[in-house]
Every structure is written in structure tokens, then in C-alpha cells.
């Protein structure tokens, strides 16, 4: 599985949260220098997958390999060394709210390099320029709009020039202009810095435009994979339901529950919260 063009491979992954199965035996391959999209309905645990790759959570079975090394089996020191090579853009941005945008971007540089402040200053302004926020360097995160916060977080995420960047729902809750800006940025960063990108999202059209390869997750499994063209042409009912945004189909609209008839006519104690 671990040939040289593969950066991350997820092998027979099984993950449970409590008694609920989140993933049941899934396999993914993330190619170096490509943009891989992972799509699926909300609440399916797409963020969980990123945390698994980042070693913040441990799988119940199966393996996750980063450049051939098993992430769950790494020692703490190895894990931290590996994390310096990857970076994650959180859905909320997760900027540190007590320091300015400038200091947020400089944070990892100050933490992990011995560069002097002059060089850090140059790097920080270059990264901020790349996301169009050089003018906002002195603002506090609370003064940024949602779209700006996400771009600032993106500048922070690329501060250390990582090999891999994971985007968690980068387009969620963005207006069309910010969305367009982010789509462009992700594409541009990926080609300019030769970054490997994983984009987790449920915004189908945006991501199909920029992705090199797509996985669709639903019902704890991968229900479809391929290049965007293959995905669009897929004859799987599951994939088509997702692409067209139909409410009901192979992916159920309803959270698992007893029969409606029983709920309405059953004894009151059984309804509502337990």
C-alpha cells in the first residue's frame, strides 16, 4: 500500500464512539501533492477522520499510515514530530483569541524554529499577503469576520510550510465571495507549495471543481470514490442521492428510531428524553 506517491493511507479503519459505530472498515489513500476531497452528510464524523489522521484519536481497529509510519503506534515524541509536518484548518478557525492575528501566524514559527524576529516578521507578512490579510495583522481575532478568521487561520496553518494540510469544512457558513476566495486559495496553495490537501466538506459543487480525487462517506462506509468526472458519472444510487441533494434515498433522512405509529400511540413515558 505504501508506495512513494502515497502520503497517508487509512487501512481497514474501524472507529466507535461509545457504542455507535462511526467508521466500519474503511480504506482511503491520500496521494502526495493532490487535493483529495472527503464528502458526506453532516454528522458522519468527517472531523473525526482528521483527528484520527492527526493522532488525536485512536482507531478501534485498522491502521493509519503517514508516509509509511503507523500513526496510532507512534510514541508521543514521534507523533509530535509528525504533526509538525501536517496542519489542520479547523471549522471555527480556532485562532488563539488572546493574541493578535500577527502573533497567531507567528505562533508555530516561534514555537518550533529558532528564527529571529526579523525573519519571522517577513514570513508572517508573506503568509498574510497570500491570504489577503496583510492589513489585518494587528487586529484581534474577535475583530475579524467569519471568512477573514478562516483565512487568518489558513495563514497560520501554512506558516511552517507543512506537507499535508487538512481542511475541515472550509466552505461552511461562508458567503459566495468568501467561498470563491477560499476555493481559489486552496487550489493555489496546493499547486504553488506542492501541498497535499485533504478537504472534508459537504459542499459538492465547490469541491468537485478543485479536487483531484473524491471519496464519499455515508452509513459508516465509503459509498463511492473516483475522480470528479467518475463520481459525476457514477451509477450508484447512493452517490447520486448525495450529489443531487435528495432528502431520502439509500442514505436515510431519518435518524434511526422506532416506528412513528408506536411513538405517537405508545405510552407517554417512552417518548421524549429517557
Amino acid at each position: 500500500m505504501s508506495n512513494s506517491s502515497t502520503l497517508v493511507s487509512v487501512e481497514n479503519l474501524r472507529f466507535l464512539r461509545g457504542d455507535r459505530v462511526i467508521y466500519d472498515d474503511i480504506n482511503l489513500t491520500i496521494k502526495k501533492g493532490k487535493i483529495t476531497a472527503i464528502m458526506g452528510p453532516s454528522g458522519i464524523g468527517k472531523t473525526t477522520l482528521m483527528k484520527l489522521i492527526g493522532g488525536q484519536l485512536r482507531p478501534d481497529a485498522g491502521d493509519i499510515r503517514y508516509a509509511g509510519d503507523s500513526v496510532p503506534q507512534m510514541s508521543r515524541r514521534e507523533l509530535y514530530q509528525t504533526r509538525k509536518k501536517m496542519s489542520m484548518l479547523f471549522q471555527s478557525g480556532a485562532l488563539f483569541t488572546d493574541i493578535s492575528v500577527y502573533d497567531n501566524v507567528a505562533f508555530a514559527l516561534r514555537e518550533h524554529t529558532k528564527l529571529n524576529e526579523d525573519i519571522i516578521r517577513t514570513l508572517v507578512y508573506l503568509k498574510l499577503e497570500a491570504v489577503g490579510l496583510r492589513g489585518a495583522a494587528d487586529l484581534m481575532p474577535s475583530e475579524l469576520s467569519g471568512g477573514m478568521a478562516r483565512r487568518a487561520a489558513l495563514a497560520r496553518a501554512i506558516a511552517l510550510d507543512p506537507e499535508l494540510i487538512m481542511y475541515d469544512e472550509p466552505f461552511a457558513g461562508q458567503d459566495p465571495i468568501s467561498m470563491g476566495v477560499l476555493v481559489k486559495l486552496i487550489k493555489a496553495l496546493s499547486s504553488a507549495l506542492d501541498l497535499t490537501s485533504i478537504v472534508v466538506t459537504h459542499d459538492v459543487t465547490e469541491v468537485l471543481d478543485i479536487a483531484d480525487y473524491v471519496y464519499i462517506l455515508a452509513n459508516q462506509k465509503i459509498i463511492g470514490e473516483g475522480t470528479p468526472a467518475q463520481i459525476k458519472a457514477s451509477d450508484s444510487a447512493l452517490v447520486q442521492q448525495f450529489l443531487r441533494g435528495e432528502a431520502d434515498g439509500p442514505v436515510p433522512f431519518h435518524f434511526p428510531a422506532e416506528d412513528l405509529h408506536d411513538t405517537l400511540l405508545g405510552s407517554p413515558q417512552q417518548g421524549g428524553k429517557k
Binding site: K84, S87, M88, F90, S92, A94, F96, T97, E111
Partner: peptide, 14 residues
Amino acid sequence: ATEQLSSLEMMAVD
């Protein structure tokens, strides 16, 4: 709650 702790971990800062 705002994932700042998580993002520290992902930046390899304990």
C-alpha cells in the same frame, strides 16, 4: 470548545 486546545495539539504544542 473553540478547538484552541485541539489546534495547539495539531501544531505539535502540548
